[in-house]
């Protein structure tokens, strides 16, 4: 219990550092030096020291929304298994609870965006809600598939001890498809290219940033921290999914997949510490891949984003088909 708490705190503290990896990768790929790795910490400290300014047209929702968002994501993180270690909290049906928590945070941010009364913030909120609704379908389908495979409704049960891949019938290809679909959802929920450009200064094209245009000072710091934690959550989901793959030798698909329960590479024998190292390595590579994807693509026109989400839906459906009957 203590160990998991400390681990969670460590990951919460380093998530701004991980977020900077994306910017560094993008800068590296165009030949620039990029921001220092600790840049996000400096930004957070600077923002928390500032005064806050509220406009005259807002209601208490505006003041309260960042805190609700942050607490929602912190609570969600307590359910997340890290590196095959079981999480802090876990109960039957917590998958749905996580979903609703994430949506709760999002709803409050959307309400706060509409609260300011600015027309393009309203447009940004409309886009945000639309795209999140599409993304939710895909996420739900993924978890329905996990439920079918393992008959469990706890998030920890999917990833702890690699139940999903080893003890169920899921083989390599569905896992790859699901990972790609989750990656698309990561790009969608965290407003990265090709869905939205986080570096843009053009308020008519923004989705997330335009909702938070009116925030200042500590509120803005909380929002930054929340977005970094959210990115960590989705990246950790992908890393959890890909983790058992490395502990099983059969990366090469020529050799048929068999559950490995004995021998030196047995899952039970791998020390938690090495699991953590593998987990962190995969996590960092997910961030790097986000940076690479951002540098190599332009962003889509807003009306093409549903097709992008549809492609991840297709991948999930195919993965479901492939794991239909063993």
């Amino acid at each position: 219990m203590m160990r998991q708490l400390i681990l969670l705190l460590i990951f919460i503290i380093i998530s701004p550092l991980l977020y900077a990896i994306i910017s560094r990768t993008k800068a590296f790929l165009v030949g620039k030096k990029g921001i220092p790795f600790l840049f996000n910490y400096y930004t957070l400290i600077k923002l928390f020291r500032k005064n806050v300014i509220y406009s005259k047209t807002i209601t208490p929702i505006f003041k309260v929304a960042p805190i609700i968002n942050l607490s929602a994501i912190l609570l969600v993180l307590m359910f997340l298994p890290l590196g095959n270690l079981s999480p802090l909290l876990s109960f039957k049906g917590d998958v749905l609870f996580i979903f609703y928590l994430l949506t709760l945070g999002k709803i409050f941010m959307v309400l706060a965006g509409v609260d300011t009364g600015s027309s393009f913030e309203g447009m940004g909120c409309a886009r945000e809600v639309f795209f999140s609704a599409l993304g939710e379908i895909v996420l739900f389908l993924i978890f329905i598939m996990f439920y079918r495979l393992t008959n469990q409704l706890e998030l920890s049960s999917y990833f702890v001890e690699g139940k999903l891949i080893l003890h169920s019938k899921a083989t390599l290809i569905p896992i790859i498809f699901i990972s790609i679909a989750l990656f698309v959802i990561l790009l969608l929920e965290n407003a990265r290219v090709p869905v939205d450009d986080p570096l843009t200064h053009l308020e008519l094209t923004m989705i997330h940033e335009v909702m938070i245009l009116d925030y200042s000072g500590p509120d803005l710091g909380i929002i930054h921290l929340t977005s970094q934690l959210k990115m960590f959550f989705y990246a950790a989901l992908i890393s959890n999914l890909l983790m058992p793959v490395t502990s099983v030798m059969s990366i090469v698909p020529i050799i048929p997949v068999m559950p490995v329960t004995s021998g030196m590479f047995s899952v039970d024998v791998i020390l938690p510490f090495s699991q953590l190292i593998v987990f962190t390595a995969i996590l960092i590579s997910v961030y790097v891949i986000v940076g690479v994807v951002e540098s190599s693509m332009g962003r889509y026109q807003l009306k093409r984003v549903p097709k992008f989400v549809l492609s991840s839906l297709v991948l999930v459906v195919l993965a479901t088909i492939l794991t239909w009957r063993g």
Binding site: T171, L172, I173, F177, P253, I254, P256, V257, K307, L310, S311, V314, L315, L318, I321, L322
Partner: peptide, 22 residues
Amino acid sequence: MIDLQVGFLSLILLLNILTLGS
């Protein structure tokens, strides 16, 4: 060889659906 066969078939399925959407 299961993985390769399944892999090829799922790739073909994926390509078909992408063709529908492109």
